[in-house]
Design a protein around this nucleic acid. Structure first.
Length: 555
RNA sequence: UGUCUGAUGGUGUAACUGGCAACACGUCUGGUUUUGGUCCAGAAGAGUCCAGGUUCGAGCCCUGGUCGGACAACCA
């Protein structure tokens, strides 16, 4: 019954959870995915989503979605909506939808608790002064002159901060930890700052907002998150995370860190992606060249292939750069099994079947040879066809299994044709290729016994529809633009979009919907773009087919 | 000059916790094929950052180095 699955080793997070469950530390687990709504989700987030939701699923636990919305100036509901849509599209559902801003009141009272305990104080220092007194990694910082204010005074001041009595930057609330700590984050970190900014959820109810370090751990604790999984750069923050929970006596959530997923030839930071959008290097967050979930979806990537990629890329603690070829493998693997085959000629040259007379012939082509019950579609065949200009050569090299004068090829799902001659214009360009066809060689009922080396895709001119194709190349010329010298934008590949407006497709493609994925025979995987209309068909290339011939040619 | 953190084929992960370094992607061969795709068969490629130590035995343990990354935002 149950298919025997190969025992796969657990990643280090799963090992921790398994041990926690086995030891009885926890009866069940609760994770959370905590995006800040200040940008669109990208493939790196997909890895985190896959981990947080996947690990909970695997061990019978649940996952909360919690928006980390503690900085109103960068956050927006547009992002909230896109993030929710992307997570759903990836195939995950959250147990609860929370917002850090839901906890503002509670967080405020926790801050007061800290003050009462003598563990926090209001500081009047300027940002510059604070930075200066912070010390350096090798030199200790010095105490603020306001560090020893009385509890009563701190309580009063903090209350006034909330009441809007002070200007932005005039006062902050700091934790009283240790200005000489070797961990710089522990040198009296800022807990609250004043911002007279409109919040996407709480509106103008607040003018003080908690910092990440005071919001995240407490939010985890309030939700009883058992395993709070984040990326490596938060390792030094764990000390504050634990400090707050201990001082406040909250539920002991624990933070674990893993290395974020990176992909070669792109960038994976919301700040950088936002720049690409704002400075119009791409058409938007969902530009098919973007590593965003929405961009990849528009390009034709499937949720399944993205999850598969995350799984294969794995989870570890060392910085890594995943090869884009693994992502491409994952999407090809799925699309090969699931997508319908269609014929589209990208760069047409006319072929005349000189011995073809009479009515057009209706042929059938299988939708997908990899899928038994995928059915067939109708393909009309007539006297005048288009084939790919690159599929004909006047002086072919020896391993050219395509069309040449005197050479025979199979037209996919149709007939074997033999090229007899070509017609050229005055400039010497080929305008027509003349062929004869063998009526007995019809696909499925071939009685000729002939074997030909090559099979070409084609369309019947009078039945074809004109389509626009958009081919995408990598967005950056550098394997790791973020690590290069200078501005990452210097490494943008300015030739990453190639539009083909004069391509012709077989008529069956008229029925295409945006959710369908196609393999254009011998060319690649494509999907219909949202820019399409009733009169215009636009298709995005998701990924090419593997191409060993071009490698052969390069030799 | 501090603290934290990491190091296994080109890339990414494993190695049942001390027992002949494995899997995937990529690369290369050959076969099949009405897609130069898929599929099938096979190959090359690391001796585990370095040096010591413990041990019958070390990628795993110990010591000391080296190199990489993070940390001095009123960002998350």
């Amino acid at each position: 019954m149950e298919p025997i699955k190969e025992e796969k080793s657990l990643n280090f997070i799963e090992e921790i959870i398994e041990a926690d469950l086995a030891s009885g530390n926890y009866k069940s687990i609760l994770t959370r995915f905590p995006p800040e709504p200040n940008g669109y989700l990208h493939i790196g987030h997909a890895s985190s989503i896959w981990l947080n939701f996947g690990v909970a699923q695997k061990f019978g636990g649940k996952t909360n979605l919690r928006f980390d919305d503690t900085n109103p100036v960068t956050e927006d509901t547009e992002y909230v909506e896109s993030i929710k849509a992307d997570i759903k599209w990836l195939g995950y559902s959250w147990a609860n939808e929370f917002y850090a801003s839901d906890y503002f009141e509670k967080l405020f009272s926790l801050a007061n608790q800290l003050i009462e305990q003598g563990d926090a104080y209001v500081d009047d220092l300027t940002p510059e002064a604070i930075a200066q007194q912070k010390g350096t990694p090798t030199e200790p910082g010095i105490n603020s002159p306001f560090r020893d204010r009385s509890v009563a005074e701190n309580l009063e001041l903090f209350q006034q901060m909330r009441a809007g009595k002070f200007a932005e930057g005039a006062k902050i609330l700091r934790a009283k930890i240790d200005m000489a700590s070797p961990n710089m984050l522990l040198r009296d970190p800022i807990l609250y700052r004043i911002k007279f900014a409109h919040h996407h959820r709480t509106g103008d109810a607040w003018c003080i907002y908690p910092m990440y370090d005071f919001a995240h751990g407490q939010s985890d604790a309030m939700e009883n998150i058992t395993h709070s999984i984040c990326t490596l750069e938060f390792i030094p923050h764990r000390a504050i995370y634990d400090w707050c929970i201990a001082k406040l006596g909250l539920y002991p959530s624990h933070q674990y860190e893993f290395a974020r997923l990176n992909v070669s030839y792109t960038v994976m930071s919301k700040r950088k992606l936002l720049q690409l959008v704002n400075e119009k290097h791409v058409s938007g967050w969902d530009d098919p060249r973007m590593p965003t979930i929405s961009g990849m979806r528009r390009r034709g990537y499937t949720a399944n292939s993205i999850r598969e990629f995350c799984e294969r890329a794995g989870i570890a603690k060392r910085d890594k750069l995943n090869d884009i070829s693994l992502l491409e493998f994952c999407v090809r693997e799925e699309l090969n099994k699931t997508s319908y085959r269609r014929m589209v000629v990208f760069d047409p040259v006319k072929v005349v079947i000189t011995n073809f007379e009479g009515a057009d012939i209706i042929l059938e082509g299988e939708n997908n040879p990899e899928e038994e019950n995928s059915g067939i579609r109708i393909i009309p065949f007539s006297k005048e066809l288009y084939i790919e200009r690159e599929d004909f050569m006047e002086n072919p090299p020896k391993k050219f299994f395509r069309m040449a004068v005197g050479q025979s090829v199979r037209l996919k799902s149709a007939f074997i044709v033999t090229c007899t001659n070509v017609i050229k214009d005055e400039a010497g360009n080929i305008t027509e290729i003349h062929c004869t066809y063998i009526p007995e060689s019809k696909s499925g009922s071939d009685t000729t016994g002939l074997k030909v080396q090559g099979t070409l895709h084609w369309v019947s001119i009078k039945h074809a529809i004109q389509v626009e194709l958009r081919e995408y190349d990598r967005l950056f010329k550098s394997e790791n633009p973020a690590m290069e010298e200078g501005d990452f934008k210097e490494y943008i590949n300015t030739d990453s979009l190639h539009v083909i407006s004069n391509a012709f497709a077989e008529p069956a493609l008229k029925e295409a919907t945006e959710s369908q994925r196609f393999q254009f025979l011998r060319k690649g995987y494509f999907c219909k773009d949202k820019d399409s209309s009733d009169e215009k068909w636009v298709f995005n290339r998701t990924v090419t087919l593997k191409e060993s011939f071009s490698k052969e040619v390069k030799k």
